[in-house]
Design a protein around this nucleic acid. Structure first.
Lengths: 271, 271
DNA sequence: GAACCCCGGTCGACAATGTCGAACACTGTT
DNA sequence: AACAGTGTTCGACATTGTCGACCGGGGTTC
């Protein structure tokens, strides 16, 4: 009786999808909220942000705490992400095939090119870094496996968007954040860039994320030819690009070779 | 009907705690299961392992898939952990105070000692590595942030157990796995070792995890003096220990100094 | 110091929610 | 061709989680 009514009046935020376990979806939303607003949140803030009754939010958070996904700072009473998530996250890395197949090829690419190498995949419209090899030289760099990069301002990201029209549309619908003067922010230019990437089979980014830095990336295809990720290198503009401000052909070849090698490994895999 | 019976016969792992959201607890169990049995699992295996009806397990897994915590291999239909967990895990690292306070002190410790440094905390009776600094020399080492180490066979683990009687009892109740001939496996010897650690304020491990390797660790105390983690170094026996097979006093001092420094940082922190 | 406000946490009644098992569609094997 | 697997769907039932009012305590403000 009130089923249909409730479904019709629902805020449309939670669509009456075939069989979504409500409490789990809410729990996931809380975890994402805690992850995004880095820091500690109180029950009240959580409940307000997700438009949940305080009691309900508390029940979910308590359970998340029991399973170790959430921790509570006993003095302030506020909540933050829990340690169990760290282990789950790295467990994901162990299983992730894109990563495991890439490792063997990422190191040589870094060695040959002399630049830092990253492998990423699309997660929720952003670039999730699943592997990262430091630039061979000593300089201290921070490992950013697990972090999210902007898709429109990185070589890897643009390559991934080029082969995922859905994600590309989503990005263009939103307002891409400008990081430098050269960051692509309009849907028109981005769309053109993606078309060019599809034609060439590789993509680049020059000072669109940070001044003085550039990157080159190529798509990695999995079983069936679907693009499942991208591999790319990044470094100072004067090393990555030639005199004409174009990505050096030799580096492009390196990246494309690595991408092909990983794709071959992935395509051959079966069970 | 089977409610009371089931509750009475329940392995005590799932107690009828005041207000556990059942579906969330089950979802967490599924994620843990996927993490432990590394690889892909089918719905049937999941349902069987957790003693759930197939339909129920499927509903939960579908939801987990919708939120990105689980991915499905379309060819085999089996499930594995999802990419969203990776980001949540690293987000935890960003927030984790033990880690952030430790970083500044872990590097100098590694530099002074010339050995690899790890910082860990207890998670579910095991040692969760929250930070890891490579040995200064070049040799390639694998980053094991996020992995779980055995508590009874590592210096960090034994230190953590020494200040957590609950976890210590749990470990002794189970059957500690022997890695080498020197691994402490009996409750008696382990208990003695923990007592000694409490007396000394630091602990060591010599070839108990892997032959030829040794480690030294000291506890890190948080606000209020509670032990919240441990910091330790590890390396070849002949470098970590002196002629008498004892941990070198200078290294012990280094480790204890670092632990104190981090503790001071943590204790002073307030908001 | 006492009013106030906000915090996190608790409790119990209600019904919406998730659970459950049988049935389905499909694949590969026997 | 029958079988034994798989993952998936569906609907009826009642268990389950939700909800809002109610505690108890720490700050702050007047």
């Amino acid at each position: 009786m009130s089923n249909t009514v409730a479904a019709a009046e629902m805020p449309l935020a939670f669509r009456p999808m075939p069989g979504q376990v409500q409490s789990i979806a809410r729990a996931a939303a809380i975890l994402r909220l805690l992850a995004s607003s880095s820091g500690r949140l109180g029950i009240g803030e959580i409940a307000r942000s997700l438009d949940l009754p305080k009691g309900t939010a508390h029940g979910i958070v308590r359970t998340l705490q029991d399973v170790g996904f959430v921790e509570q700072d006993k003095t302030s009473g506020k909540y933050q992400l829990g340690a169990a998530l760290l282990h789950l996250g790295t467990s994901y890395l162990d299983v992730n095939e894109l990563r495991s197949r890439s490792i063997n090829w990422a190191d040589p690419l870094a060695a040959r090119s002399g630049e830092a190498v990253r492998i990423g995949t699309l997660l929720d419209g952003k670039v999730l870094v699943v592997h990262h090899v430091f630039r061979p030289d000593d300089t201290l760099q921070t490992l950013d496996v697990g972090s999210l990069l902007p898709p429109h301002a990185t070589a890897i990201g643009k390559v991934l968007l080029a082969y995922d029209v859905g994600a590309a549309n989503t990005v263009m619908q939103g307002e891409p954040e400008p990081y430098t003067r050269r960051t692509v922010v309009t849907a028109r230019t981005l769309s053109q860039a993606l078309t060019k990437i599809r034609e060439n089979g590789w993509g680049a980014e020059i000072e669109e994320m940070t001044l003085g830095e550039a990157g080159i990336a190529a798509p990695i295809r999995g079983y069936g030819g679907l693009v499942v990720g991208a591999i790319g290198l990044s470094g100072p503009v004067d090393r990555v690009c030639d005199g004409q401000g174009q990505p050096r052909p030799t580096l492009v070849a390196y990246v494309r070779d690595a991408a092909r090698a990983v794709s071959r490994d992935l395509g051959a895999a079966r069970w």
